[in-house]
Design a protein around this nucleic acid. Structure first.
Lengths: 191, 191, 191, 191
DNA sequence: CATGAATGAGCGTTCATTCAT
DNA sequence: AATGAATGAACGCTCATTCAT
């Protein structure tokens, strides 16, 4: 019974509304999206925004944390499918596509994080994703599909350099090129 | 031919001083370097700065144009070396390394460009670089070293996604991975 | 006789806790002590604080009233000691010293009162103190120790100008100088 | 020829306007007078105010410095009159009256200084006043009018405790009482 | 043409107060 | 009656830009 049993129903709702509005406004207007504008988009007053997030930096950190949560969930789902017999290389490929598209949607959030040097509020999702990815890589290497010198750091490199602010076709091409560096297969003339 | 060629001597000098100061201040303090600080670093008053560049955006665009000029020059030099018999793949590799290191030094300028969404003021250097790179690629393909589906767009992708704000070792690894997507050689276990 | 005498036990307790917390927080942090902080220090929610005191001004006024209560009690005790035979001039001197030291301890409260222009909520203690002081002055004048033109207003002047935010030595010197204006004795070279 | 020969004519005028407006607004509304309101009262934009005074604290410090300048000038004039034969005690009395009235006009400025803990920007006027007052005191003591234990610190005590926010009659009475502590004359029943 | 003083919209943040629960 | 989440006007301050000198 360690609940703080208060009627926090609306407070929770507000927190969600604020995070959604923050992601949206920052994506639309970049890091210079104003706190007032985010609050207005969320349908609350600034004071409420500040009750939930004492800083602009903290707000951005929370948006990032939410995003990382999705990444971690995706990675873990991939691991499970591999455990169920799916080929690791395919799962890695799909996971990377998934992350890339998610990053594209939140591209400006990354920029805001850089400008404000906001760290994710919670390190747990990062670790979860790292564990899952390590597992995928190892399986892929055991299958002989992934180059033996590939490490989790290559994944970070990939996440941090994906062309999130370019058209989907550019991202697809970029992933093709990058993957040929990760796999043992090289590229034939046709792909 | 309504060119003005009057005592532009100091005006040209001022323009140069301002561009240098802008690059330096933005590299030091990021996009939030103030116009007053740039002017002070250039040894002129703000008004003078605004006479040369009506906007902060325009100033950043000019800094980027200058940078692109260097890129174009590097690409053209590579073409000449290839014409003199150097292997195209090697020249491409070195050129990419060079651009990447230059970008890393000016990374804050790129960030400023994003925040202010500044386009280069002058398209000429971009074209010069494109011509030179196209030539290099074609030679590399004729040599059988570069994958036949590689285009100039892949180079843009490379420039725009280089991890300029990460350590040199990360950039080296990244280039290795990326290049294996451009070449016909794939990667052996050892590189 | 529409007095309410219901289970006010905890309400009274809360009122006391709030007043104590207010005095403490204002003494610690000056007039800019926040209502939230005072409420937290009192162990209640802001809403409760506002139930007891509709305003910050009213809260400060209540703190002052409490303080004045102490002053009145001191004055009345002095009157009783004079009635029992103590010399009025000595009692006045000691009383003034006492008030001055108490004011010094609560100096931030006085500052808050000024900033918020808060009057004491309850006039009764002021009157009690006035009556007692008038009695002391009259006795002192009858004794020939207090200058005949001295009035209760001189006491107010004294309270309101005591250097409460200066070291105790400054306060002592100040009282010496001031008292020589109230008494018939002047000052010899030695005091 | 160490002039900065620029046409600062209006800048100087603005500085004056800002100081006047600051004194006025702070006197009217206390320390919480807003920077925007002061700027508006001065007829300039906030930015201009901040060009002249980087802080609210600095602005208040400048107002105080101006006030201290007047005090110093008054003290020095008194010294000159004494040198010309005027009785030191009279001059001290008049000087104190003068300072007291000036303080009364600027009463809120003192409060603002306390709240913002602003020190005068320039220590020189304080020293000038101190020198002049010391001279007056010594002459008064040589004349046998001022009590031999009186020091400059007693003057500071007096300045800092004058009832500046009370009616002129209260200030007059207060000065009478206080002076009887400074002089060797005591008070007869008639004054 | 250069100067630098002036402008003022805008920012992130605070806090006394209100009100749904 | 108590709670604490929500409100929003106000604050001190910044900085790209304009314009009188």
């Amino acid at each position: 019974m360690t609940q703080a049993r208060a009627p926090r129903a609306d407070a929770v709702r507000n927190r969600k509304k604020i995070l959604d509005a923050a992601r949206e406004q920052i994506s639309l207007h970049g890091p210079e999206a104003g706190m007032d504008e985010i609050a207005a988009a969320a349908g609350v007053a600034v004071g409420t925004l500040y009750r939930h997030f004492p800083n602009k930096t903290d707000l951005v950190a929370a948006v990032i944390a939410e995003y990382l949560d999705g990444v971690a969930a995706g990675a873990e789902a991939a691991v499970e499918r591999v455990a169920a017999g799916a080929p690791a290389l395919d799962e890695i490929t799909h996971f990377l596509q998934h992350v890339m598209e998610a990053s594209a949607a939140d591209r400006a959030v990354k920029a805001a994080a850089l400008v404000l040097s906001a760290d994710p509020a919670d390190k747990a999702p990062v670790e979860r994703a790292a564990n899952a990815l390590t597992s995928l890589i190892q399986t892929g290497q055991a299958d002989g599909d992934i180059h033996p010198d590939v490490t989790i750091d290559d994944m970070y490199l990939l996440f941090s350099t994906a062309p999130t602010d370019q058209p989907a076709s550019a991202r697809a091409r970029w992933l093709t090129l990058f993957l040929s560096g990760l796999t043992t297969h090289g590229r034939s003339a046709g792909n």
